[in-house]
Design a protein around this nucleic acid. Structure first.
Lengths: 112, 112
DNA sequence: AGTATATATCATGATATATTGATATGTCTA
DNA sequence: TAGACATATCAATATATCATGATATATACT
């Protein structure tokens, strides 16, 4: 097992920003979108709307939020806008959680 | 439009639960706590309160939330309760983001 | 020009989460 | 037992996030 990289403790301000980034991923439908993009590489908004059976407006807002966070990026082709994952982190994080998830959920502990 | 291979895609319900788990980490002070525990291995509530300069009640609530999510665990010793990280995911996720963070932030793209 | 299509944005009510101060619970020690 | 200390919980309010329906913008086509 690899020894944790004890690189310095990050100052609270950075953690705040990281927390913000994490929160962007903390939404079921947004994870669905990430999964979809992971699977198909690139998809138009309409593709995504269909794939995850969402509402157009809502999906567009999710895409906007994730784009603002740098998680995904877009390219316009005619009237469609194609999105793709632009950062490794969501995939890494999802994989990490998929792994955690497959384990039996560890119970917490006795009441105190 | 590409047809999604549904077998590899996690069902929305799981994603919803994952999103919930992710959201627990999406909070600056909670990341501070994780970092502190990562650094010190085990700490009492008071230790943590001091280390991150938080309010006792708030810190206790954060700890409770993270414990409920299985991220950390606790052990009582006398009147203190010592917490430690009990799941790899927060560390993995934090490292992942630390890595992302060190890169120059990629700008998104033109207005559409 | 006008119409259809794709996407983005806005306004808002509903819900969730955070923050704070106060108090309750549990545990030790004199 | 009382009193101090450590932790947890509660209640009230503030703030953030979501979902929805409506509308705006951008592009293509005729």
């Amino acid at each position: 097992m690899k020894k944790a990289d004890k690189s310095e403790v990050l100052p609270q301000m950075y953690l705040e920003q990281m927390a913000e980034a994490i929160r962007v991923l903390g939404h079921g439908q947004r994870l669905q979108i990430i999964q979809q993009l992971e699977l198909c590489g690139e998809q138009s908004v309409t593709d995504i709307v269909e794939a995850i059976a969402g509402q157009q407006g809502a999906v567009s807002q999710h895409l906007g939020k994730m784009r603002a966070a740098g998680i995904i990026a877009a390219r316009r082709a005619g009237r469609q806008v194609y999105y793709h994952i632009s950062s490794a982190s969501p995939v890494t994080i999802l994989n990490c959680l998929r792994r955690e998830y497959s384990k039996t959920v560890t119970k917490s502990n006795p009441r105190m």
